[in-house]
Design a protein around this nucleic acid. Structure first.
Lengths: 401, 401
DNA sequence: AGAGTATCGAACGGTTCGTTAGTAAGTGCG
DNA sequence: CGCACTTACTAACGAACCGTTCGATACTCT
């Protein structure tokens, strides 16, 4: 059978302890700690921690930097995690933009740049844009792209996580079936992961916010997608096609045949997506607001009006909240997450909308739901990509020991 | 911060290797293996395996039993996992029955007994029934209940996995809010786990069948519940309330307020549950079949008639298949499991029903689904409980080293 | 200046692993 | 019947790691 997880000597023990010390050091305040701190954090003996620390220093992963502030007794030497040893990049490739971040090994973002993809863009053009953006941001962070240790890319659509291919990306023409990942890998010479953008958004929420080990993220904009973190890992499903809440059908009569989609949108997306919100607003609202909506196409105006008490706007918000709650309830009944975070363009609507959603939701569920609005904003996908790139780095880091 | 996972000496290494050898031995054909087999299985050196094996033998976990069949060279001694060292019990408490299984540490069921709960039973009566059944089955397996190392109980409803309490059990009056688990724990003096029955069913499917690490089980009977295995663990959700597919609402008009349930059933259960199937059959079918259905109340007759070509029966099957596919599609879009296994009373309907479901399902999904019918039958919950009890035993086993 | 305190560094004993060499127990052929 | 060959077991050795212990160091407070 499979070889299993057998250790093969005291040598692995050293690695285990060294990585334990490394993790404690990295998790410490400011990525620095004294030996004594690490002793209590890891449960190891002082010599063991010292040994591990010197090994880390030899590998360049840690360094001894000055002494601690003097309280009493002999001052302790501070050990510091050398976050500048390597760098990772997180990339968000959206339908209208390419956002690149470069961070050090501690995950602090050193430089970032967002490029807007010109209209009528092709997948090929996105790749060129990506190359220049990456070199620019890397330069700003003081490195060249080939110095990167690990890269993660987030993109809409269904992604073959194993083979590094985009299987289905309706929103970016010519983007799927393009060997971007293989190309990046060749160019950079480092592991390049690709992941669904919503899955990365939830990783970022898990990372920056301090919520439980089990949360659900709903990207609510023109389209609707959900990402889940289960056991501290993004959950992808067997074919990387999990979380497609946007495609559930709540509207077709039960005994009828569902109509095949014509616009590439899923049934639920057509029901509560930003497009439908705008349509409803233009249909129901009074003249001045209707004109403004038609001119700007920005649904924020609609929510503002609703918050101000505009009756027609409130009715739109109510309709949308009712529908959204129905769809979200389905996923909550199935997943039972500890908390739900809503992101995407519609999430900026504020309490007008989400208080209504919460109210509707209550009667549809068996256990109460904890619904929040994302605080990360548009950077969340790239941030999640940084986090995922960091996860891939751990291997390379511990291999140095 | 949390202490982290630091090893504290060569001593843990021994434990790691010993458990690796133990696992290899237990997974081996017939729970026996030669040292050389274990060397290749674990990747350890021969002396290390021998040392671990003697430690296991000292603890009574393994024994050396005769030599192997001689091919050429010196015959090898066979080591055997002593499955008879301890026993576990798996218990299925259903609305109408109590099923108790006792198995050895290898998971082979030594004795089992099913007791039918009399009509008008109370939670209290179930407990009494359970005690006698457990003593009987234990005796048949050659032990007393207090000899048990670990017990797991499966029950319908929502279960507080941490505190060992039944939170919500509509189908067994007086069953929730009864401290059965605490009582069992006191009586037996061993860990007693409690788990939702469908979650245990999926554990059993994962154990006995050899499907992927990511599967979905749908219990389809009077009620509908689903269980998921993710990363080789049953997925419970944050409040142990995951998988409540039976409560999703596909029928209420979107802009209407859903009606509060009156019969304790969920909306989807009312739509495709065994009760609705029977109702539809009696409403649509011709006289002789209608009478039989009214008399026996067994929907198997309906499916037989449909398989034989009875037009009205076929229409019922078609309606049910259409509705069920709609609900199942929702969960598949969200979870994207590697395969779906349907169990419960309706699963005995056969291909008449499930071919229709498969056909309908195809157009509702983004990736094709692998839909199967459970082969385990009514024992699945108790089997899953045995498996879960075994998981809890590992700790005690490795503590002996 | 001296007592007190906390850290640092080195040496010791214990445990584990892998490697190597030698011994035991069979088969098969001359 | 004996010898070569194959395979498995046992024992001894060196290497690596951890924890414990002890003395030395550096700084603060009185």
């Amino acid at each position: 059978m499979s070889t299993g997880s057998a250790a093969t000597g005291p040598h692995v023990l050293r690695r285990i302890n060294a990585t334990a010390v490394l993790n404690a050091l990295r998790d410490a305040e400011g990525h620095t700690a004294t030996v004594s701190d690490l002793v209590v954090a890891t449960g190891l003996s002082r010599p063991a921690v010292t040994r591990a620390l010197t090994a880390l220093a030899d590998a360049g992963i840690a360094e001894f930097s000055g002494t601690t502030e003097h309280h009493i007794g002999r001052p302790a030497q501070r050990a510091r995690f050398r976050a500048e040893l390597g760098h990772v990049a997180g990339i968000d490739i959206g339908p209208h933009k390419v956002l690149v971040m470069v961070a050090d090994l501690a995950g602090t973002v050193l430089a970032q740049h967002q490029a807007v993809t010109p209209a009528g863009h092709t997948g090929d053009g996105v790749v060129r844009l990506l190359r220049t953006a990456l070199t620019d941001v890397a330069a700003e962070a003081g490195i060249t792209p080939t110095d990167l240790w690990s890269v993660a890319v987030g993109t809409p659509g269904i992604v073959d996580h194993e083979r590094g291919e985009v299987v289905l990306a309706p929103s970016i023409p010519g983007w799927s079936s393009l060997p971007v990942i293989a190309e990046l890998r060749d160019w950079l010479g480092c592991p390049v992961a690709i992941e669904n953008d919503v899955n990365l958004a939830v990783v970022a929420e898990r990372w920056r916010g301090d919520d439980g080990d089990n949360l659900l993220f709903v990207q609510w904009g023109e389209r609707i997608g959900t990402g889940m973190v289960i056991d501290d890992k993004p959950y992808r499903g067997a074919s990387s096609a999990a979380g497609e809440l946007g495609f559930i059908d709540l509207v077709t009569d039960l005994d009828d045949e569902p109509k095949p989609p014509t616009d590439g949108l899923g049934a639920f997306e057509r029901l509560v997506g930003a497009g439908e919100i705008l349509r409803l607003g233009m249909a129901r609202c009074d003249q001045p607001l209707r004109d403004r909506l038609a001119r700007t196409g920005d649904i924020a105006d609609l929510f503002e009006a609703a918050a101000a008490g505009d009756e027609a706007a409130v009715s739109v918000v109510d309709t949308i909240a009712t529908r959204f709650a129905r769809g979200l309830a389905v996923q909550l009944l199935i997943m039972d997450p500890r908390c739900v975070i809503v992101g995407g363009g519609v999430s900026r609507a504020g309490d007008v909308l989400f208080d209504a959603v919460r109210k509707r939701l209550g009667r549809l569920l068996l256990v109460p739901a904890d619904l929040r609005v994302s605080a990360l904003g548009v950077n969340n996908v790239a941030l999640g990509a940084v986090r995922m790139a960091l996860d891939a780095v751990e291997e390379r880091l511990t291999a140095l020991l």
